[in-house]
């Protein structure tokens, strides 16, 4: 595993921007509602994440933290 991300479930607004831009298709929308009523994005951890941080750069809510190793 080269990288992984953490999505803050409180900050996420389910805009699906990260889903659209992740080159590896690592992020999915879900049915899970957060306290503000948004369907939060979830990281689909199948080890293909490169830690490129594209998702974090585009996330308007600054909800994504990226780790790379």
């Amino acid at each position: 595993m080269k990288g992984y991300i953490e999505i803050d479930q409180v900050l996420c607004k389910g805009c699906e921007i990260c889903t659209f831009f992740c080159p590896k298709g690592m992020i999915n929308s879900s049915d899970k509602l957060n306290p503000s009523g948004y369907r939060v994005a979830v990281f689909n951890d199948n080890s293909e994440c490169t830690g490129c941080a594209i998702c974090a750069v585009v996330c308007p809510e600054v909800a994504i933290e990226v780790y790379r190793g």
Binding site: G3, Y4, G51, A53, V57, E65, V66, Y67, R68, G69
Partner: peptide, 9 residues
């Protein structure tokens, strides 16, 4: 692993 992207201070 190292955190490479986080919330600005």
């Amino acid at each position: 692993m190292k955190k490479i992207y986080t919330r600005p201070k």
